[in-house]
Amino acid sequence: MAVTVLAYLAAMVLYAGEYAFGNKSRIGRAAVRPARQLVGAGAPIDLDIPASSDIPAETSVEPAPDRRAEWVGRAAVAANLIALLLHLGTLVTRGIAADRMPWGNMYEYILSAGFVGSAVWVGVLLRRPALRHVGLFVSLALVLLLGADGMIAYTPVGPLVPALQSYWFIIHVATIILSSGILLIGAVPATMFLIRDGYDKGKRRFPYSLGRNVPDATLLERLTFRLHAFAFPLFTFGALIAGPIWAEASWGRYWNWDPKEVWAFISWVVYAGYLHARATPSVKRTVATWIALLGFATMLMNLFGVNLFFSGLHSYANAGGM
């Protein structure tokens, strides 16, 4: 667990390194520029190098900072992959130690959701290398999430209480882990879109100043939507169908309004609001994206806040009872 966090931390530092070295990096612009111009993209601002130029790009411009950044960036991706494998290892060993799926309590749940988010990110990265800069924010988010998980929610290995011994439990928790992992990671392109959009509108104060090296706003916005649109039905199924089915079998009522259910409902409504806002032409995309971030906040509340502040039927880490 600690090693996993360290590996993500390493990936984060390397991403940050690339970010720092490669100011005006090629990656930031690669996403918005026709592919044939990539060759010349090493030059600071000059876009006029003809694509047919037979001078290799490296000799046409001073290569040093960009190539270093490139290497650091590759190392960052490598570190990210290693971190992902370690993360998987943590999950598997935990599952073996407990002799069941590693979803029995909040600690394991967040560990799994983080893994899904991380895996989705790596998938996006492999398909669209142009988005590599997002990695800094993804790894930052993962370090924070897993760090908080290890410090706040850690629970020793233990067996499942009987109420959790149900295949609906597996379906319910698996789909919720999958969807919340994707929703959590969806907040990263959402944030970056807001930063980039602010930057494009001429804002230069702190968070917006980061926007310089970030991929194109439209691309980020679309990625945000894709992730949410994919995860939303999954979340609907996990939280509002499979969950109630299990609850009916277990507690007799399909919906009990216990704090976890309330917050899942709130997240669902907020994300539905996001989809609506995005579907409404008169609502600005930035406003819609803020709603997605609000949804993210409600998810965090459910992951950490509810377990810390409220007690309900869902407090699975507690022993005893049914």
Binding site: W257, V262, F265, I266, V269, V270, A272, G273, H276, A277, A279, T280, S282, V283, T298
Partner: peptide, 18 residues
């Protein structure tokens, strides 16, 4: 749609005290 959006928000906020 705007009203629907506002109402969705109110619903989310109103669920919190519970």
């Amino acid at each position: 749609m705007r009203t629907a959006l506002v109402l969705l928000f109110l619903l989310a906020v109103a669920a919190v005290p519970g």
